[in-house]
Amino acid sequence: MSTTTTQSSEAKTTTRELALSVQNLTTSFRSDRGLVTAVSNVSFDLFKGEALGLVGESGCGKSVTSKSLMRLLPEHVTRYGSDSKVMLGSDNVMKYSNREMRKIRGNRIAMIFQEPMTALNPVFTIGWQLDEALRHHTKLNRADRRKRVVELLDMVEIPNPDKRYGEYPHQLSGGMRQRVVIAMALACEPEILIADEPTTALDVTIQAQILRLMNDLRERTGTAILLITHDLGVVAQTCDRVVVMYAGQVVEQASVGDLFHNPSHPYTRALLQSIPRSGKKEKGKRLATIDGIVPSLLDMPKACRFAERCDCRQPQCDVEMPELVNFSGDRSVRCHFPVHK
């Protein structure tokens, strides 16, 4: 299947510039029980200055996708598909050597990890850790680097950045640590920022601070953000487009408005309906659920992977795997019987 590029009705989409293009990404792991394919044929484009949401439930392959892009998975057990491409400009990152990879990690593509508690090294000061990317990727001298680090800390709104420079991670609160992690990711002004559940471990008030910070940075620097999350509320508030994953595949891709107001894939619809809604008339009502469980990676159905749990299942769904079909503009759906309104 091909990726959706520019053919949209919206004016702004015709001028958008590609930052990263993922084509047919397939990631498998060697295991005792054979090759396990965690991500199959995932394709999507990320444009400059946009925030793309990658959503799905635990185990659907969103984190494996993001780590594949950065090639952070353990090499001796990971196999990528032969036609898998991750295009950064005109280069296929999948073909890069480790040395070439190190040049772009933290420089052109940066990543924010989920756990602010474990993403920082407890035995180095935060200043030293922030300085690391600058030491490797820039030619700045020591004094300039220090100035830049303080500037970064100030940018992520950490009070007294000069004093914080010499402090250790345990001296900061969870929200501040996540801000340090963001500052670290932004040290070299990357073109692409991959944020893997950046706010999941944080309280809502701190989450709001972090989301605003990421939005501001995107507007100011034009960094493209790939936001991986299971929280649809966060997606609704921050993303331009959304990719929905289920059992290692992309099942729907759409602009955020289309996805929330007019979901096409039965899985997307079910997911949106299972969130408790505000308001008196919804109160205490039973929530819509998705029956059954996600199929095991070792035993994926050959046909539609969602068929087992789908409420619009037809005979065809058990026989044939639906393709990801591009409908209009930004919308693609992997379903034999998508819902249209």
């Binding site: 989450q207 709001a208 929280d231 609704a236 508030q237 955020v256 929330f260 949106l272």
Partner: peptide, 17 residues
Amino acid sequence: KSNPINDPDDRETLYIL
């Protein structure tokens, strides 16, 4: 106000505490 709501049209900036 800092709880993100599921409506992309209602992006009244998240309240920051």
